[in-house]
Design a protein around this nucleic acid. Sequence first.
DNA 1: AATATAGTGTGTATTCTTTACACTAAGTAA
DNA 2: TTACTTAGTGTAAAGAATACACACTATATT
Lengths: 231, 231
Amino acid sequence: METILPKFDSVFSIDCVIFGFDDGELKILLIKRNEEPFKDWWALPGNIIQHDQSIDLAAERILYELTGLKDIFMEQFHTFGDVNRHPQGRVITVAYYAMIRLNGTKELKPISNYASKAVWIPVNDLPKLAFDHEKIFSRGFDKIRNKISYQPIAFELLPEKFTLTQLQQLYEVILSKKLDKRNFRKKMLNYGILKELDEKQKGVSYRAAKLYKFDKRKYAKLFQKELTFSS
Amino acid sequence: METILPKFDSVFSIDCVIFGFDDGELKILLIKRNEEPFKDWWALPGNIIQHDQSIDLAAERILYELTGLKDIFMEQFHTFGDVNRHPQGRVITVAYYAMIRLNGTKELKPISNYASKAVWIPVNDLPKLAFDHEKIFSRGFDKIRNKISYQPIAFELLPEKFTLTQLQQLYEVILSKKLDKRNFRKKMLNYGILKELDEKQKGVSYRAAKLYKFDKRKYAKLFQKELTFSS
DNA sequence: AATATAGTGTGTATTCTTTACACTAAGTAA
DNA sequence: TTACTTAGTGTAAAGAATACACACTATATT
C-alpha cells in the first residue's frame, strides 16, 4: 500500500470530464485505476499539476496523453476542495470539461502509468466512480446542459458536417427532453450560424439529409448578442 | 524582503470579491497590503488555505475576519492558476464572490496581520490592484452580472425591506444599463416572489414608496422554473 | 394657504418569440 | 410497384418584451 502523497502537504490536481457524442449517445471517457487508492475503480482522467505548468495547460496535457488530441474545447468549471475527498491527504482538484468529436470510433492512445485502460461510457450508464468523481461528473454535466442553451458548444461534439437531425438529437440528449422538429429547425436556421452545404448524407437506407457546417465567422459577427439555443 | 513562500512548492489560496450596494453605488471591499510583495498596494481580501479546512470554509473565514459577518451568500466562480501570477512562487487561487448588505455604514473589523486597512470602493472607481486581482475582479463582476439575470441574488445586497426603485437601481448598476420603470415593475411583481408590506419608506422628502420583502418561500416553490431577471 | 419639487405608481398598443401541431416528399429495399 | 423510413415544411395562437407619458402624493418653501 504505497503512499503517493505526503500526509503533511496539499496537492493540486486536475480532473477532466471529457464528453463525446456517438451513435445518438452522450458518453464520457473513464479510466480504470491501476493504483491505490481506489485500485480497479473507474475514475475521471486526472493528474497532478506540475509546478511549471498553468492549470489550463495541465488540463490540455491530460487530454492529449489520453486521446492524442490537441486544440480541443476545454473549460474549467469548478474546484473541489473538501478536506477528505482524497483518503491519502489533502488534494484540491480543479475540474474541466472537454468536448470531442468521435467520428465513428476514435482510437484511444495507450494509457500511462496510473490507469490500465480508458473507455467511452454512456452518461446514462455510469459505474460507481472513485473519490468524489460522481459529484464532479454531475456538476460538469449540469454545466454543459446550462451552457449549451446560450453558447454554440454543441458543434464541438458533432462531426464537421452534420445533419439538423443529428444536431437536434444532441440537444435532446444533453437537455434530456424532446424538442419539436419544426421549431428546432426554424430557430437554428434563423440564427444564421449554419452553412448549408451542397452535400448530402451517405450510406443511409432512406432519404438522405442535407449536411450543414457550423459557420464560425458568422457566429463571431453575432457574438455580442447572446443566442439562446434551448427549448 | 522576506520570502513567505518556499520557491519549490505550490500553495493554494482564496481571494474574495465582496460586493456591497450603498447609496446607489456598487462597491467592493479592498484591503491595503502590509507586506511584500505588493506592499502598500490595494488587493482583494484573500488568504492561504489551511490543511484542515475546506475551501468553502476558508472563504467564509476570510469574510468573517474582515466583516464579522456569517451565513453570507458566497460562491466560487473561478480558479486562477497561471504559473507566474505570484512573484514569489506558485500560488493557485480559488476566487469567490460574496454579497453583503451595507445597511447605512457597516463597521469593518480591525484588520489582521497582512493588511493595514479595508475599505469599500465603488467598482467604477477602482485603483490598480496587486497580482492579477484586476482580472479576478472583472471575472467576478461578469459572473454576478450574468447570474443576476436568472437568479435572485440581488436581494442579498439590499436591506431586508426595500423599494422597487432601489431594486431597479441595483439591477441598473450591475447590468450597466437603464431599465424601463413600468416594465421592470410589471415583470418583478409578476414573478410573485416579492411580498408587499404595509409599510412605507421613511425620512424622505417626497412621496414615500411602498416597501417590499423578498419572499423566499414563494421563490422556492417556483424554483424548478428558471426565472429571468434582466432587461 | 399656495406653490414648487421630487419621486411614486400606473396601462396599452406593438413587436417579437415561443409553442403546438400533421402531412407530403424523397430515397431505399424488397 | 409497393412498402418503409426519415427529411422537410407553414401557420395560427399565446405569451413575453418593448416603447412610451402623465397624474398622484408627500414634503419643503414661500
